[in-house]
Amino acid sequence: MTAAPMTATPMNSPILWIHGAALGPANPALVAWPGRPAVFVFDDALIAGSALSLKRLGFLYECLLELPVTIRRGDVASEVLAFAARHQADGVVTTAAVDPRFRQLGQAIAARVPLTVLPVEPFVAPEAGGPQPGDLGRFSRYWRRAEPLVWQRFKG
């Protein structure tokens, strides 16, 4: 959805940081690195700050139970870094997310170990004629550009 990889450092034994915007088996980090240790961290500051209800946490937990991932809680960046140290990893691989909080956490992690952010397959292929940053004033304008590209895929 966003951004190219933050770094392209070659890695041999990274850990995978799984976050709440990519809780499926098609998560590009899980697909690219099958079998590597993966961690999800319940973000204590976010949970308390937003007063998230138990059902939201339960939904995430049930998603995690279907993934090969170690589940932790606490300060996300420190937990991910500690998990990397625990597995003597030479980097962290994760998947892009739009949330500005993801970017902050990513920066905190990347300050200490190499971080690769894999892109997610976009809804609208980034082709010529597609929606540009200047097209987001209203949905109708965005959709005029996006709709034809989305329907190009229809083989009807």
Partner: peptide, 12 residues
């Protein structure tokens, strides 16, 4: 965290 689980189940 308030409340109980949702009847909507998480997961793939």
């Amino acid at each position: 965290a308030s409340g109980a689980l949702s009847p909507i189940v998480g997961g793939w």
